[in-house]
Design a protein around this nucleic acid. Sequence first.
DNA 1: AATGAATGAGCATTCATTCAT
DNA 2: AATGAATGAATGCTCATTCAT
Lengths: 200, 200, 200, 200
Amino acid sequence: MLDAAVRTFGRRGYRAASMEEIAELAGVSKPLVYLYLHSKEELFSACIRREAAALTAAVRAGAGAPGPGVPVERRLWEGLTAFFAHTADHPDGWAVLHRQARTHGEPFAAEVAALREEIVAYVTSLIGAAAREVHRDPGLADGDVAGLAHALVGAAESLADWANATPGVDAREAAATLMRLAWSGLGDLARGEGWSPGAV
Amino acid sequence: MLDAAVRTFGRRGYRAASMEEIAELAGVSKPLVYLYLHSKEELFSACIRREAAALTAAVRAGAGAPGPGVPVERRLWEGLTAFFAHTADHPDGWAVLHRQARTHGEPFAAEVAALREEIVAYVTSLIGAAAREVHRDPGLADGDVAGLAHALVGAAESLADWANATPGVDAREAAATLMRLAWSGLGDLARGEGWSPGAV
Amino acid sequence: MLDAAVRTFGRRGYRAASMEEIAELAGVSKPLVYLYLHSKEELFSACIRREAAALTAAVRAGAGAPGPGVPVERRLWEGLTAFFAHTADHPDGWAVLHRQARTHGEPFAAEVAALREEIVAYVTSLIGAAAREVHRDPGLADGDVAGLAHALVGAAESLADWANATPGVDAREAAATLMRLAWSGLGDLARGEGWSPGAV
Amino acid sequence: MLDAAVRTFGRRGYRAASMEEIAELAGVSKPLVYLYLHSKEELFSACIRREAAALTAAVRAGAGAPGPGVPVERRLWEGLTAFFAHTADHPDGWAVLHRQARTHGEPFAAEVAALREEIVAYVTSLIGAAAREVHRDPGLADGDVAGLAHALVGAAESLADWANATPGVDAREAAATLMRLAWSGLGDLARGEGWSPGAV
DNA sequence: AATGAATGAGCATTCATTCAT
DNA sequence: AATGAATGAATGCTCATTCAT
């Protein structure tokens, strides 16, 4: 039933999706949908939560647990690959999270913002760990890292759309593109040699 | 009248915005809106076009014209600053472009996709110019650059939202964050020294 | 201006015709139409009156004045021919009278009913005169004649539509058809030999 | 529900009738009307079809089946009586067919034109049968008969309105009027003695 | 004498939601 | 446990009509 909802919401959008269509696609009657998921809002929230959980689980599973012999570079790379693989495999869920949930008012925007913050926090911790690998006491302020994490997440989101729309670009390719763009800059920052506007 | 429409569409979304509300906010009657802007679809399209034009104009004006004494680094930095300044100054217009237009079906998605491609092409050309400054014959395939440009644009979009939502982060700060993340990696790529998955 | 109205009303119908379209077709502005013909209702009434007058004038002119040397048979025949010729030459006016005016409520139905009664009375007088030619004191009750006149008028209306829609049928042919159908019966009645249900 | 629609359409006309009024008269809510009859157009079409079927059924039932001992004169007379009785008993349905359907554009005009052609064909066949009763090989061209049938149908339509509007005129009286007018002429035609314009 | 500009009121249609069963 | 049947409320859109000029 949630499958049908995710598919319909992802393709039609929150407003354009009708409970009728969702119920029909799920092969049940409308009142049944209301029995389990008490309103359109709750149904959409449930979709968001399910897809958010699936996405974070996939990324965490990809990145793996921190450990002595596992460099952060590798964990980041694997996490990104898992992210792109998941979005490619669940285009409707990704559409719900990335496109629909953020555009239809507070109740949902908050839900997806929480997801985003969770991912940003995760990425932030990875960046911090990476920096500590390079330099015992890296000169990275918290505000700086938050911005970097947001930038990384946004870049990943955009690349996900691009990879899905571009034949021949798979998850590894997308992940490599993002690493090529950002890994070097992260290292500079950890060493305190990051770009600064002074030069220009 | 378009102002009212942009504001309403940006906050409510295409479907949830009613012509009634738009007209009321504009201080005119509904039929007048229809007299000038023929239908809800056309009205939304007009909003998209106006905001897209304003945004690209702001970015181009910020980046300035290419010239002998102007390093690309500086043009990129200024263009980004202009972008963040514009999105901060026009949050509803930015919401229409970034959030609403992409989520409400073909007619509008196509319109905003064209805008995005234009910006991506612009960024692509800047990256190419930057690479040529570093190395006469940089080893960057076209596909690589397209990916990089999409990543950069996505990072910028995400940072715009972050900057707008985070007190104390202004356009310069957001631009600096993106430069810090990406400039070093772009330089590596131009020199043929970019990150590669082989290591991990 | 009335021409434009008749044409539009005749083709679109009263409700579907918009004052905008009428004004545009007349080459003037809408307020001017309101200046001269103060509302849609009055405009439609004016159309009805004009077309009714034109039609009755044409029929009367065709039938000619009563006179010693003019048999009523001939006057009826010529009047019918004039009727069919007029309706063929003014299809929009005919549509206004025959189709539109009778279908859109009291104010107009009354107007066209008056026209119809006028024509019925005219035909009634012709039938009476014809009967008197055949028999000094014909046994025709007034009620009988009224019914006959209504039947004749209805037959003529229907034949007008048929003639207009059927290539190769002109006014004389339509008039001859009606005379063939009805002239004999009228003569019988005048002689007191009309059909009666007793037989069946 | 169709009853309410027929009544409203018959009295107000297609455009002036509102779905709201129809629903209210039917004692149900507007969405229910849409649930069963999908649109105003379909609803009107359904009315036309139902009333057309009822009318033709009544006429056919009245005229009865052809048979050896049944003269056509009688079948025509009975069919006409049935027609006038039906139109008197169903004034709104008759208004829908005779007045509204023909004035509101192609989809409906076509529907009622089909009905009319069916009736004209039926009358045509009766006329042919009557002629053959009178004369083995009657000299009636097809085009002639078509015109006669149209004239008869039009006369009947007009008499139906007249009978409904005139107190004291019932179905038998209306039918007799039409027979008196036309039966003699039909007989003449069958014998090849019909009226011709040569005389006048 | 003529109109550009504007609106109040109405209408077809849709959809989230609820009962009675 | 499940639904057929029904509706209140909202929305896009149109049009006869009127001023200010």
